Amino acid sequence: MAFTPEPYNHSAIADWLICKACGTQFPTSDRSALGTCHICDDPRQYVPPSGQAFTTLAELQQTHRNEFTTYAPDPRLTLIATTPKFAIGERAFLIRTPGGNVLWDCITLLDEETMARIDELGGLKAIVISHPHFYTTHVQWARAFKCPVYIAAEDKPWTTMDSKHQVLVTETETDIGGTGALAIKLGGHFPGSLVLLFDGRLFIADTLLTTPAGLGRWHVDGTGEARQKPPGLNTFSFLWSIPNAIPLGVDELARMWAILKAYGFEATHGAFLGMDIEDGLVKQRVLESMQIQTRYMGHEQHAFMRETP
């Protein structure tokens, strides 16, 4: 992709304010000029009981660090998560592809150690971000690694700054720079919410929210005896607002499935540590979960209930 990279100047942005609740960076260091965060004032997020508060990259670099973990079932994937937990607490994935490394989703903390570690792994060809809750410091990441960052065109108004590095995704399906990774626009949580498909792995953030039942291991404690997952348990929930538990309606679920059904995948990777499902039937579990949600919202007779994988 041809564009002139913008300079990454840590000293210039180290004191810019960052929302402690969602991790979004604002292009100002003037605390008197910023009293609220538009991301957290939206019903899909929240302001904590303690009130709106801000920090900076300079402060975070003194108290937090990023941990890198190779994903055991597929060493092409490296998980990056901030410790101790900061803001929403999402993880990013560094995905090594034949065409270059793709970073799926973004975390706030960017420091010299993180940059050096990613450079050791081959740098970044592109960044793709699922939705505005994870926009965080994405412009600084894109500048630091001199790469494009893909975000949905519909969700651009949620960004806090403009950058030539931002690539606005307008199509339902977008190839990510010849890497073999495919951004798929599902919507739902946000109008432009994205998932990423690479080699049978679907990176879902919380566009599809992985549930505790979905992660269950169905065996008898102490014996290791395996059994089938009990019927009627979902694997995913589909929410307009995750923290405030506002569900998506059945027509939106049907629209999302009409897009997703065209793709094959055998694993899903959610927004947070541990939210990984390795199951050749996971696509079927997506539809089953959508239909469970539809049923309990009172739409047993909706045409969507007749959909099959």
Rank of each mutant, 00 (worst) to 15 (best):
G270P: 06
A144D: 05
A181W: 00
P98G: 08
L281T: 14
C40D: 13
A262N: 15
A245F: 10
F93N: 15
Q62P: 08
T172I: 15
F272R: 07
A87Y: 00
Y150P: 10
L94W: 04
E278K: 12
S29P: 04
F190S: 14
A183P: 05
D221L: 14
D206W: 06
E67V: 15
Q52L: 06
V286H: 06
L197C: 02
K156R: 15
F54L: 11
T160H: 03
L103I: 03
A33W: 09
W141F: 03
T210F: 06
T28H: 09
V169D: 08
T210Q: 12
E278C: 10
W240R: 10
I184V: 09
L110T: 12
V286K: 06
D74E: 12
V282Y: 02
P7G: 02
A144P: 05
A303R: 11
H10E: 15
G274K: 02
R31M: 09
W158D: 14
D15E: 13
A12L: 10
W218E: 13
T56F: 05
G224Y: 09
D251S: 11
E67W: 09
Q228P: 13
T108C: 05
T159K: 10
E120N: 03
Q293K: 01
D199K: 10
G188P: 06
E113N: 09
M115V: 11
A183K: 03
T136W: 06
L215G: 08
D175S: 12
D74Q: 09
T63F: 07
N234Y: 05
I13L: 05
K156F: 14
R285K: 14
T82C: 11
G51Q: 06
D42W: 07
G264D: 15
G100C: 01
F190P: 11
D119F: 02
W240H: 10
R255I: 04
F3T: 00
V250D: 07
N244W: 04
L287D: 00
A142R: 00
I292T: 04
V149N: 04
T55C: 01
Q62M: 13
V195N: 01
P27V: 05
I277S: 04
T114N: 07
C106R: 03
W218F: 15
F272D: 12
E120P: 02
T82M: 12
P73E: 02
K283A: 03
Q52I: 12
G178F: 07
R117Y: 07
A81C: 11
I246T: 13
Q301W: 03
H10G: 09
D175M: 09
L253G: 04
K283N: 08
H299V: 01
E266L: 10
T137I: 08
C37H: 07
H299L: 03
I184L: 12
E113Q: 12
I204E: 03
Y135F: 13
V167L: 07
L248I: 07
R44Q: 09
N66Q: 07
D279I: 11
G99H: 03
G35A: 02
M1K: 11
P75N: 13
P84C: 05
